[in-house]
């Protein structure tokens, strides 16, 4: 019973924090809300029996990736002028059209989900099981992911240089 209450609580927090994150004008504020949302999702992970994923969500998503955002925002030094402009961009006439599109998609997804039965948890899947599967049948996927990360590393190193040669 406690689990279910906790789940709805965490879901509510996640949704609210995400909506807030999407509507803030200040990037740092939005980022804090996003971190809250990610932490709430981590709680959901834990509740449905994926503690390892929950830990990763906190460590990598809420930790590493978000810190990267913080660094970049600090480097950019946006200031008050940026906030005002962001607020000006968030007019109803701008967001009403996309909102309708999103709603339609949501309805379709709801229609899809409505027919699904069953519980979301069939016991805890431990880190050990995950690790065995990861380095067994999914070893190629692991290799691909490592290649991807390497590419990301090289790409960000190249893009992060102070000047890029023009014209190439």
């Amino acid at each position: 019973m406690l689990e279910i209450i906790l789940f709805y609580l965490a879901s509510g927090v996640a949704l609210a924090a995400t909506i807030l994150a999407m509507t803030r004008a200040n990037a740092i504020h939005a980022l804090i809300y996003l971190i809250v949302s990610l932490l709430a999702v981590a709680v959901i992970f834990f509740l449905v029996g994926a503690p390892f994923a929950a830990a990763l969500e906190i460590v990598i998503y809420a930790g590493a990736i978000m810190v990267l955002f913080v660094f970049v925002i600090m480097m950019l030094n946006l200031g008050e002028k940026g906030d005002a402009r962001e607020r000006q961009w968030l007019q109803p006439r701008i967001w009403s059209g996309p909102a309708v599109l999103s709603l339609v998609l949501l309805c379709e997804l709801l229609y899809l989900i409505s027919s699904i039965e069953g519980s979301a948890s069939a016991g805890t899947v431990t880190a050990k099981t995950v690790g065995i599967a990861l380095f067994g049948p999914y070893v190629i996927a692991v290799e691909l992911a490592s290649m991807l990360l390497l590419a990301g590393l090289v790409g960000s190193f190249h893009l992060g240089r102070r000047t890029l040669e023009r014209g190439s």
């Binding site: 019973m1 689990e3 949302s37 509740l47 996309p98 949501l106 997804l109 699904i116 519980s119």
Partner: peptide, 22 residues
């Protein structure tokens, strides 16, 4: 008493649509 699957998926869909809207 466990969490119903479709509720989790519902949360996931909502988050997806919010992200898309953003």
């Amino acid at each position: 008493l466990a969490v119903p699957l479709n509720h989790v998926l519902l949360v996931s869909s909502l988050l997806f649509c919010i992200g898309m809207l953003g």
